[in-house]
């Protein structure tokens, strides 16, 4: 008897009538043996996103969703694409049910294949990546940019399975093990490309981390003040969002750099000058922020800049004293 997994659906922001149709279709399919869970809020980890393409909320979620996440779009002009299927609005329950049933079968096959690939004794492919890399940061960035699926081995450390499509890293080891692997020179790593169809979403008994979390650590550990190829120090940039420092190795200077780049677009040269953080550290921070998609390039600098706030020196002194008082232990 084939083993099937429950498929997790996330359906944020659907109109009431569409939600009722979805609930009904899922209930009918579950009664027929196809098991779904339905979450009405956005879940990044869901196997399937069901969205109204014509609602503001649906478009926003679609824009921010993972590329590898399968989407079912409700649309008055349905168009399909990679990992995207569409259904005509207004939604007919039977049509939706049949479509979900087909998706269930297809996605089960993908999940089964992924699980088999990850638990196989040998890698899916023995083909080397062939990618020229100097360190783990280069390698991980390449995996993410080209949506590769790679196996990375380092002597005496647990293997990393890196999925650039779903932006995840699976390993049986701890985060400390991952950091040690990141610090390993590239010439001591064994890298193998896995089947391009493989995804990590169905893995079990492995610790799964976001690829961005590992990329951030790799950028800080490996950049050593060397700016990414093609990037310049005189182009103004801004942060789109704060990095999630709680998931990464914390460095106090990064708070200062993040606060300044979140407020105003600055060139890296200006950022180093204004923050008084060493240039090499600014570059490491920039590389990390760029690699996790937090950097926004600014063309019209003067229009974007907020007026400088005149800071009271007494106030700055107080804030500095509080920061000193609340310095991290150790």
């Amino acid at each position: 008897m084939p083993i099937t997994k429950q498929l997790h659906i996330s359906s944020p922001g659907l109109a009431d009538q569409d939600l009722v149709a979805l609930r009904t279709a899922v209930k009918l399919l579950s009664q027929a043996g196809q098991s779904f869970s339905l979450e009405e809020k956005y879940k990044n980890s869901a196997h399937l996103l069901v969205l109204d393409e014509e609602s503001d909320g649906g478009r926003a979620v679609l824009k921010n969703s993972r590329a590898g996440q399968v989407k079912l779009l409700l649309s008055s002009q349905p168009q399909t694409g990679k990992n995207v299927v569409a259904i005509q609005k207004p939604v007919d329950i039977n049509t939706l049910k049949n479509l979900l049933s087909k998706l269930f079968v297809v996605m089960q096959a993908q999940l089964l294949k992924a699980t088999q690939s990850l638990h196989a004794d040998k890698p899916v492919s023995d083909q080397s990546s062939g990618t020229p890399t100097e360190n783990m940061f280069d390698l991980l960035l390449d995996i993410k940019a080209n949506r590769r699926t790679m196996e990375i081995k380092s002597e005496s450390l647990p293997t990393l399975l890196v999925d650039g499509e779903n932006r995840s890293v699976a390993t049986s080891g701890s985060m400390d093990d991952v950091i040690k692997t990141v610090q390993t020179p590239a010439n001591l790593l064994r890298v193998k490309k896995l089947d391009g169809e493989t995804t990590l979403s169905g893995t079990q008994q492995l610790n799964i981390s976001s690829l961005d979390t590992i990329l951030w650590v790799a950028a800080i550990e490996c950049s050593k003040g060397k700016l990414l190829p093609g990037h310049t120090i005189d182009k103004p940039v801004k942060l789109k969002a704060w990095p999630n420092f709680s998931r990464t190795s914390f460095r106090p200077d990064h708070l200062k750099l993040a606060a300044m780049l979140a407020r105003n677009p600055l060139t890296l040269a200006e950022l180093s000058q204004f923050s008084q953080v060493p240039y090499d550290d600014v570059v490491d921070f920039y590389n990390a922020a760029y690699s996790v998609d937090l950097i926004e390039f600014q063309e019209n600098l003067e229009q974007m800049r907020k007026p400088e706030q005149k800071q009271d020196s007494k106030r700055l002194g107080l804030l500095s004293k509080i920061a000193k008082r609340l310095a991290l232990s150790g």
Binding site: L239, K240, W242, N244, F245, K256, A259, A327, L328
Partner: peptide, 27 residues
């Protein structure tokens, strides 16, 4: 754009990082 961190309220270091981020913004 505000800092959003995962914190364990029982962890002094987690809460300190949060307040340090606030101080960085205010500075």
């Amino acid at each position: 754009i505000f800092p959003v961190f995962e914190v364990d309220a029982r962890s002094s270091d987690d809460v300190k990082i949060l307040v340090q981020a606030l101080l960085a913004i205010l500075s």
